[in-house]
């Protein structure tokens, strides 16, 4: 249980969180939104703003491992939590996460602006055993991430590739695989 605390509207509240594996302390106002704190105060621009109202998914981050819209979360509520953004997904040596690698190989993006959100949703989904692995279930689970460039087909293929990769099997034999690679 977190301790009781109270802050006036113009107070600066210190928030301590683990951001991409590193402890971070940042002073925010009570109404500061996690997305804005990431992009403007911490200058981590990888998390995107596409609507600011939970309608596009571009701002998706992991909070304690769960995919959330950072545009609808108060930064002060992240006290003591682990926040992972797209900047924290690749290995320290620069090796891409299997989902990132699959996005690269499948060309699962165009303009790239929704991409961090797609990837954060995809990685959380692949870790969530409650979500089925068939193509229809993936499409449904990913529907909170709009891609206006319409790279949905390649995103799906990339996610299914990454699933195979992360399970240690041969990459991808989803029904799209042979077609996309031809």
């Amino acid at each position: 249980m977190k301790d009781y605390s109270e802050h006036s509207p113009d107070a600066t509240v210190p928030v301590h969180l683990t951001l991409n594996g590193e402890p971070v302390s940042v002073d925010v106002t009570p109404n500061a939104i996690l997305l804005d704190v990431l992009r403007e105060q911490l200058q981590l621009g990888g998390t995107k703003k596409g609507c600011d109202h939970g309608q596009c998914g571009a701002c998706t981050v992991h909070v304690d491992g769960i995919a959330m819209n950072s545009c609808l979360r108060l930064a002060v509520m992240c006290e003591g939590q682990e926040v992972t953004t797209i900047e924290g997904l690749a290995e320290a040596d620069g090796r891409l996460h299997p989902v990132q690698q699959a996005f690269l190989e499948r060309d699962a993006y165009q303009c790239g602006y929704c991409t961090p959100g797609q990837i954060m949703s995809a990685t959380a989904m692949l870790d969530d055993e409650r979500i089925a692995s068939d193509d229809a279930a993936v499409r449904e689970a990913m529907s909170g991430n709009i891609c206006r460039c319409g790279a949905y087909r390649n995103i799906l293929a990339a996610i299914q590739d990454a699933r195979q990769q992360m399970q240690g099997a041969d990459p991808a034999r989803s029904d799209l695989a042979s077609e996309v690679r031809s």
């Binding site: 200058q43 981590l44 990888g46 953004t85 797209i86 900047e87 996005f103 790239g112 991409t115 961090p116």
Partner: peptide, 14 residues
Amino acid sequence: GEYKLTGRAGYTGE
């Protein structure tokens, strides 16, 4: 691609 996939591509707003 890597810039877009890792969040390092700098779009104007950021």
